[in-house]
Structures are given as structure tokens and as C-alpha cells.
Write a protein that binds this DNA or RNA. Structure first.
Lengths: 157, 157
DNA sequence: ATTGAAAATATAAGAAC
DNA sequence: GTTCTTATATTTTCAAT
């Protein structure tokens, strides 16, 4: 397998999660490395797929995506196949899709501009082969959404 | 309120979501602008808070966060207050926290390295004032997690 | 608000340790 | 694997439109 992610790598990841625009010199200073070494480590983290991409975090409300809901999809067949995946991916309002344990088969995270558009997404979900029902949880307020924790002491280094 | 986000801004946002490392010259080419103009627009999008931050997407499995679960928290009091928010934020394994409509009060997204650690998070959740119960949905497989859709024609420009 | 160009800065590659 | 050096490329500022 790939080389292990060590303490310094975790510190680099945490720093880049917080601000991926900072210079390698600053990044290196933070973790006790030269700019060159920091650069090399980050390059390898990207190469190994630990860093999947550099991206921006967009305020949903600013781009007309003020409605957030989690939808559980019941199904009468095994849904862990590529066609199901593709059918869900084809609905742009679906931000996440997961296969879950429990009475439902799938959990999806949906962002729309209006409740009407959420309804339209649910209608499309019913068109997917195997889907027999939906249960929707509407979000009233989001406390926070943040990057996953990489510096938790509970996680083995 | 702040100036509207126009079509070009949406194109810039989509391009940066896909790859925030690309040069402003390339970014400008993509949307039919000079490097300077692209830079200026992105600067304003940051200033206005449309772009909340530039960050990296880390593979959870690579940093010992292979367990993902969504937990619904039942409560016997109104939970939409700062103390509740802070109590949830103090648990690093909680990546998202939302107030929801429906029988439960809160929905949180949790990532841990092991089921045992997930259990420890649930125990901590019970210590939060007002929490009377939990219902956990364990994720077996994640189909996808992607940036929110900003170029959907259904969204008003 | 956009352009084009200049100056400041950062990235990326390479040699030495 | 790290550091230092050098060349390349990008970001950032600014005057002009």
C-alpha cells in the first residue's frame, strides 16, 4: 500500500483545509519544514490521492441553494450498483449519495432553491429503478459544515 | 444587499470548485475574461462571502476516518441555541450539524476511525443538555460527495 | 467594471548534503 | 528525505479606458 501519513502530513492537511491559498513557505513554517520540503510533501499527498482536490467552499444561500434536505430512499432491490449511482449523479441537486444500513437503502443530500424544486427532485428519485419510497428530512438551520477532522488524537497516526 | 451573482460569476465558481489551483489566466479564458478581470471578480466573490474559503478535499479513508454515520438526535427542548451549537462543535468527529424538521431535532454527520469511536461520540452526544435519544444511520458505501451545483439552469441567475 | 503591463511573489525543478 | 539555489510562472497592483 501507499506510505503512511505521518504527523507532519496531518498538520499539512489541517493547515490546507483551513486555507489552501497560503504559500508553501508559510505552510512549512507552521509544521517546521522548509518551503521546498512542504511543497514536496504536499505534491506526494496529491499524487497518492490523500488530497483529492483543491476546491472552494461556496455559500449555498448566495447561489440560490437555500433549501437543504436529507432524503432516505427505500428500495426493493440491491442498489449498490453503477446504474443506480449514475442515475443519482445525473440529478445535479444531489450533492451526496450513500448506501446505508437500516430500513432505507440510500441516503442523499439535496440542495435546491425552493421547496418546489425539492419536490421535483423527489419525483425524479422515484423514476430510478428499484426506488419504492422516500422519507425527507428538511433542514431548518445549519449549525456548521466543516472539513473532516484530521488531527484528532484518537486517530492513529 | 450585496450585488447579484451573474452568469460569469457562476462559471467562475464552478471552475474553481472543480480546480482551485488553476491560474487566473486559464480561469479567465474559460469564462471569456482577461486574467485581471477574473482575478478581480474572484476577489470580490471572496470579499462578499460567496466564496467562503479555499480548501482541500481529503480522502477520509487515508486519514483513518473510514466510518461514516448520520445521527439523528431527539431532544426535549429547543436546540437552536448557541450552547447546543458549541457543544456539538466541540466534538471533532462531528463534521456537520443541522437543526431539522420532523420527529428528531438535530441531524449530525459523524466520521470516525472505528465503530467503537462512533459509539464514544454517541455517548458524548447524550451528555449535551436536552438530548434524550439518538438514531444512527451507518453508511456502508459512499457513491459520491461533490460540490454543490452552481450552474443548474433551474436556479435563477 | 475591464484591460494590459509592470513589479512582487510564489511555484517548481535540480544539485548538494 | 531535506535544504538551498535558480529559473519559471503566477499573483497582485496600478494606471488607463
Amino acid at each position: 500500500m501507499g506510505a503512511a501519513v505521518d504527523e507532519i502530513d496531518l498538520a499539512l492537511l489541517a493547515a490546507l483545509q483551513a486555507d489552501a491559498t497560503q504559500a508553501y513557505a508559510d505552510l512549512g513554517k507552521r509544521v517546521g519544514l522548509s518551503a521546498g520540503s512542504a511543497h514536496e510533501r504536499v505534491r506526494k499527498l496529491r499524487e497518492r490521492g490523500v488530497i483529492r482536490r483543491t476546491t472552494i467552499d461556496v455559500d449555498p444561500a448566495a447561489v440560490n441553494c437555500g433549501v437543504l434536505a436529507f432524503v432516505m430512499l427505500q428500495a426493493n432491490a440491491w442498489m449498490g450498483n453503477p446504474p443506480t449511482r449514475d442515475a443519482l449523479a445525473a440529478i445535479p441537486e444531489i450533492q451526496e449519495a450513500h448506501i446505508i444500513a437500516g430500513s432505507a437503502s440510500l441516503l442523499v443530500k439535496v440542495r435546491t432553491s425552493t421547496p418546489e424544486q425539492l419536490q421535483a427532485v423527489l419525483r425524479q428519485a422515484f423514476d430510478i429503478d428499484g426506488v419504492t419510497g422516500t422519507e425527507t428530512i428538511v433542514v431548518l438551520e445549519t449549525f456548521f459544515e466543516r472539513p473532516l477532522n484530521v488531527t484528532d488524537p484518537n486517530l492513529a497516526g
